[in-house]
Amino acid sequence: KELVLVLYDYQEKSPREVTVKKGDILTLLNSTNKDWWKVEVDDSQGFIPAAYLKKL
């Protein structure tokens, strides 16, 4: 599985998104959309702007 590093805090703005903190390491589930990547946070899944993430 691929991991990503969160570069900036992000507060979810819709139920399909997730809240993350700078420095979090998350599992990347889908990066086919260049603007929004799907990640797994704890036991939930959701989208975060790709610009907030860096592949490890």
Rank of each mutant, 00 (worst) to 15 (best):
E17H: 09
V20E: 00
E2N: 11
T27C: 10
D35T: 13
L29A: 03
S31R: 06
L53G: 04
E40P: 00
K21W: 07
A50F: 02
G46R: 11
F47R: 03
L29Q: 03
V20S: 02
T32R: 10
V39N: 00
D43A: 11
L53D: 02
E2Q: 14
S31G: 11
Y8F: 13
A50Y: 02
K54C: 15
G23A: 02
Y10M: 01
V39T: 01
E17G: 15
Q45H: 11
E40A: 13
E2G: 11
D42E: 13
Y8M: 13
K54A: 10
N30D: 15
E12C: 15
L29V: 11
N33R: 08
R16D: 11
L53W: 01
L53F: 01
K1M: 11
V6E: 00
Y52E: 03
K38M: 15
W36D: 01
D9G: 05
S44K: 15
V6Q: 00
L7W: 03
K22R: 11
V41A: 10
V18N: 03
S44A: 14
A51P: 08
W37R: 00
Y52W: 07
K22E: 07
K55E: 06
I48L: 13
V6F: 01
A51L: 10
R16Y: 12
T32G: 08
N30K: 06
V39M: 01
K34M: 09
G23V: 01
S44Q: 15
D9T: 05
P49N: 04
L26F: 03
D43E: 12
Y52R: 05
E12H: 14
L7R: 04
Q45R: 10
A50R: 10
N30L: 08
I48N: 02
P49M: 04
K55T: 07
D9L: 02
K38Y: 15
D35M: 13
I25H: 03
A50L: 03
K34G: 08
K1E: 08
S31C: 13
N33S: 09
D35L: 14
T32E: 14
L56P: 00
K1H: 12
W36F: 08
K55C: 10
L56I: 14
K34A: 12
V41S: 12
S31M: 07
G46N: 05
P49S: 03
V20W: 05
S14W: 10
K34R: 11
S14V: 06
L26Y: 04
K21R: 13
Y8L: 09
L5W: 05
L28R: 01
E12Y: 11
L5T: 04
K21S: 08
V20A: 10
R16H: 12
N30W: 06
V41D: 05
P15Q: 10
N30M: 07
I25Q: 03
L56N: 01
D42Q: 13
A50T: 05
L5S: 03
R16F: 14
N30G: 06
A51K: 15
S31Q: 09
L26A: 07
K55H: 08
K38G: 05
Y52N: 12
I25K: 05
E12Q: 15
A51I: 13
K54V: 13
D9A: 05
D9E: 04
L53Y: 00
L5V: 11
Q11G: 07
L29Y: 03
A50Q: 05
L29H: 03
L7H: 01
T27E: 07
K34L: 09
E12I: 15
E2R: 12
